[in-house]
Simulated assay, not measured.
Amino acid sequence: MRSIPFTVAAAVGALLLLSACSDSGGGGTSSSSSSSSGGSSSGDDAGKDSAAKESPLHAYMKSIQYDGGDSAKNHKEVENIIASCMKEAGFEYTPKDLPSQPASLDDWEEMDPVERAEKYGYGWAGSPESEIDPEEFVSPDADYLAAMSDSEAAAYSVALFGDQQDVDTSELDWTKGGCYAKANHEVHSNRNAAYEDPAYEDLQEEIRRMFEKVPDDPRLAEINAEWSACMNEGGFDFARVNEAYESIAEGYATLPETADETAWADLRDKEVATAIADAKCQEKVGYPEKLQEVQFALEQEFIDTHKAELDAWIEQYATDEAAK
């Protein structure tokens, strides 16, 4: 089974952080933010205006929303803490610069949906992450590490990353994760506190379930039918928007890793073709705008129903930094 595609990973992150325009549709072209942000149709300006609107839940909870802050500053803080920690452990560690990213990684959400589908499919066939060449990076400590004996290298690795190889990932303990985990905890823990508080786990689960309900909302039935008719014209047989993405996800989930390259190539070709048709039909029928309309309505209903719980969460964790 292949790893989760960039589109889904990004969507999950957006959902957990209560992003303004969550990916409620599951696939990259189903996002109310990304799908309505490009194209050359006559409704393009309207789509951009729609995507620019702040969602009710995002607006309501922005005071406890953490978007990662200044990534360069955070990275530098982490690296300096690692260096100090490793020095205490008796090792050298040179703080590393933040790796450069391809422009497309930052522009993912801003790309025209059809262009994105043509280039990446749904995210398995390709992704901005795949454009990062790991061989371009050379550790400033390469010579220092190469001169180590096997036992010294093992001790260095334990100091840096800890020794939890045999522990289930759900049971990882940052205090046993070496200097790397220590540094990341110091830099990021306070910013994530609101989302790690067990008192609000049930509320966050309710939020997740609310977003999951968006694509199945009865108010999308008519536009799903219009999208389905459009897809049928291109030779695809799907009743609902999510089915296009899910069919490809199922393909990757069931294709053995041992399958030959021809099988993988055929599936990637199928992914790209499906994603392109999906993006074009969503744009044609105005699905992103309708999806956003329904999502915003459900968010407001959620706020009205859970106002007391949300207010308690906000009161406990609101910060001026997060509200900016």
Rank of each mutant, 00 (worst) to 15 (best):
S34V: 06
E222K: 12
E206H: 05
F302C: 04
T319Q: 05
A277K: 11
Q282F: 03
D266S: 09
I64E: 08
Q164R: 13
K96Q: 09
S151H: 09
E206D: 10
A312Q: 11
A275D: 03
V12S: 05
E186S: 10
A259K: 11
E271V: 02
W313F: 10
A117Y: 05
P288S: 05
L16R: 13
E129S: 08
E136P: 09
Q300K: 12
V294C: 02
Q295G: 08
A10S: 12
C179G: 01
E226S: 09
E136F: 14
Q101W: 11
D49K: 15
T274P: 01
Y144G: 03
S100K: 15
F6C: 10
L220S: 00
C281N: 01
A183E: 01
A59D: 15
L291G: 05
Y252R: 01
K87M: 03
L145D: 02
A239H: 08
S40V: 04
H75S: 08
T29V: 13
I248E: 00
Q101R: 09
N242G: 06
A117C: 01
R240W: 02
Y245I: 00
L160H: 01
Q165G: 15
Q65M: 07
I132E: 02
I248M: 05
S40T: 11
T254L: 10
R268W: 06
F91Y: 12
V272I: 15
A46F: 05
M111D: 09
V214A: 05
A194Q: 01
Y245T: 00
